[in-house]
Amino acid sequence: MNKLLEVRNMSVSIHTDGGVIQAVRGVSFDLREGETLAIVGESGSGKSITNKAIMGLLPVGGRIDSGEVILNGRDIAHCTEKQMREIRGAEISMIFQDPLTSLNPTMTVGKQISEMLLLHKPQMTKEQRYNRALELLDMVGIPNPKERCAQYPHQFSGGMRQRVMISIALACEPRILIADEPTTALDVTIQAQILDLMKALQKKTNTSIILVTHNLGVVSSVADRVLVMYGGRFAETGELDEVFYDMKHPYTQGLLNSIPNLQLQDQALYSIPGTPPDLINPPHGCPFAARCEHCMRVCQKFQPPEFTFSETHKASCWLYDERAKGGAQNG
């Protein structure tokens, strides 16, 4: 399959008054045509910053220190703002967690959709833009698009607003859609509607989706591949089934075990002890070492390399080193 987007060894730091946060440290992944890649991790794992870096939307003080983001054979990590503006919306679009704060409250929904078209397709006439907006609203399942087009975001419910966001993001038919926790702010029954919509639209338009989430249920219902991040680094990546049924990294194991299984009730729930690392002074070795039950001496001192289990399945953990085989059993 064709690689649409390649992130190579990207590191991102954010300069704040409290110190330099090393939010992402050497993350690599690629995105293929028509697939959904889920990036999973806790708050502070660097999953959102990774995507903001791709989009060139880092917060003040944030910058890409090293690495490349290759889109169609071109490195966009060091593009100017003007060049980025041409890419954003046309080639990569993003939808955010909170649809209320990411829509403009003073503009009608129709106008917000047209704005995107105005920027990227200046050859379209006003009428063509209006018709395209109606078509988009209809595509994302909003009833009476004509009436809704003239309404403001506050007149929409949470699920409907997220639909509007999706329609704006897809207005110029981008090849990549980055969805940053698109359903976290929504109720379960609305979440199911939005996930169904995203799946249906992907089938129709063959858009590749990067889905950022911490909800493993959402991951298992929509993703094709999974990338697990922890403490700014990549922990494990693989096909959906590989990560869910043959997880290698102790963090992935812990994460999956700490969700209550609908069957068991009496046993204590598995929980990962401790808290995520401080990224201003990140640990030298594996970021998960302090919370890992298989932690060895080497884990605290050296960052584990990538170990490959299949063509698609990789994990970064010292347990899979030849030399650790005996030690791991002894604890």
Partner: peptide
């Protein structure tokens, strides 16, 4: 039926009541 289960195999075989 709307809760997505963290179990891809079960998810594939599930029919969902979407309200």
């Amino acid at each position: 039926s709307a809760i997505p289960l963290p179990d891809p195999r079960a998810e594939r075989g599930r029919s969902r009541i979407v309200l």
